[in-house]
């Protein structure tokens, strides 16, 4: 079962990555060129997934959409980790009021809806992929801060931290040399879950027109465009929906699989 999660997750995520890479060098058709004559074609040999309301090949748009899903995932999760992990480790190591402060700010950011943040950012800077990434990134910081703090507390109770300190390792060096390597599995799990959330959030923001501009292919944008012709061409909504589900499920499975594979207690038991 554990193996299965890891493999299935890797396969699904691998599929998304492959699609994104492939779209860099090749797509069946131009993913942005409007072809009025080809509007709303059903699946055929020429267009395996059919065409959308603008006559654009859906498969081509889907492949290019994987790029933006991954980009948003990597950047927003990266941003959240770069800010959240040091804060969490600091809170876990220092305890006391530092920990209180970090955790209360985390709570506040966590309680603030990501969507509202995205609307605010879009209102000030205009909706773009960048504002979507920043909004998603900021709202994911608390998850990283909490996970890292919990992991750090666990590690700090271990004798090897005391032993390192007793040899003269300063607190900051201990954080880098002993705490981080021992909480990396928690961070990895959080990252894959965060990835899934980010892909979903980016789709939602694009759907609402708060993210990537309409012309650029995104899965969320494709869902939004499919709305106008949902009853005449329902398949149009199915494909991006499947792609999103595939990526989210993939990252979640990968996260679960990683957690089990990296947990030393489970590893020992094998």
């Amino acid at each position: 079962m554990r193996r299965f999660q890891l493999w299935a997750g890797t396969a699904l995520v691998g599929l998304v990555v492959l699609a994104a890479l492939l779209s860099l060098v090749w797509t069946p058709y131009d993913p942005v060129q409007v072809v009025p004559a080809d509007r709303l074609l059903g699946p055929s040999l020429a267009h395996p997934l059919g065409t959308d309301g603008f006559g654009i090949d859906i498969l081509s748009r889907l492949l290019v959409g994987a790029r933006s899903a991954l980009l948003v995932g990597v950047v927003s999760v990266g941003l959240a980790a770069v800010v959240g992990v040091p804060l969490g480790v600091l809170a876990g190591m220092r305890g006391g009021w530092v920990s209180e402060l970090v955790m209360r700010i985390s709570d506040i950011v966590f309680a603030f809806p990501a969507l509202l943040l995205a609307i605010l950012l879009a209102a000030v800077y205009g909706g773009s992929t960048a504002t979507a990434m920043v909004a998603i990134g900021i709202s994911t910081i608390p998850a990283f801060a909490r996970t890292s703090r919990a992991g750090t507390l666990e590690v700090m109770a271990e004798d090897y931290v005391l032993a390192a300190r007793a040899s003269g390792t300063s607190a900051p060096t201990t954080a880098i040399r002993h705490v981080l390597p021992n909480i990396v599995q928690f961070i990895g799990v959080q990252a894959s879950v965060g990835f899934a959330t980010a892909v979903l959030a980016e789709a939602a923001l694009s759907y609402l027109g708060l993210g990537t501009p309409r012309a650029v292919p995104t899965w969320g944008g494709m869902l939004r465009d499919s709305q106008d012709t949902l009853f005449t061409a329902p398949l149009q909504a199915l494909w991006p929906g499947l792609a999103i589900a595939c990526a989210v499920l993939g990252f979640n499975l990968l996260g679960d699989g990683l957690r089990d594979a990296l947990d030393p207690r489970l590893r020992e038991a094998k």
Binding site: D159, Y160, A163, A166, P181, N182, P264
Partner: peptide
């Protein structure tokens, strides 16, 4: 310097 009680946990498992 100091030597601790639990040799099982006093060394960093990742190093």
């Amino acid at each position: 310097s100091m030597v601790f009680q639990e040799p099982m946990t006093a060394l960093d498992p990742t190093m």
